[in-house]
Amino acid sequence: MNGVSFNFTVPGDDFTRAGEASSAIKNKLKSMGIPPAVVRNVAIAVYEGEINMVIHAPGNGRPGGGIITITVEPEAITMVLEDKGRGIEDVDKAMQEGYTTAADEVRALGFGAGMGLPNMKNYSDEFAITSTVGVGTTVTMKIYLNK
């Protein structure tokens, strides 16, 4: 397996910086010669996840935010988004389009409409989510390179 992995840190709380990690990931994948359509799908899926980390994993005196790990292998790109946020009480509900626990301030910024997780699932070929209330959430997504 000749895979290559890289990590990106997402700061919690700072909405103006949300998207910097996804932007860096997009540029990195582009420079590796990954097909543009795949790069776009990865970028969108990771960006929604990054926004979620900022919205739902605020620092509040703790580090907050999370880590995005991207692994590129010949057959697929794997994205692991791990945060130490407040966790999700009902994951099935959270996966429904339109379900949200985001505050009004977040909606005023153009997010928090309950589309984030469904979008992430739609753009990936494999999707898994585990979450523990008070501990954090981990989303693992895979996008195949040869479809």
């Binding site: 103006t16 998207g19 932007s23 997009k26 543009p36 970028a43 969108i44 910024l109 153009g110 997010f111």
Partner: peptide
């Protein structure tokens, strides 16, 4: 009508 940097980020991700 949204004015924050996330509009540009969204456009960037979507090409």
């Amino acid at each position: 009508g949204l004015m924050n940097p996330q509009v540009i980020r969204t456009a960037e991700m979507m090409d």
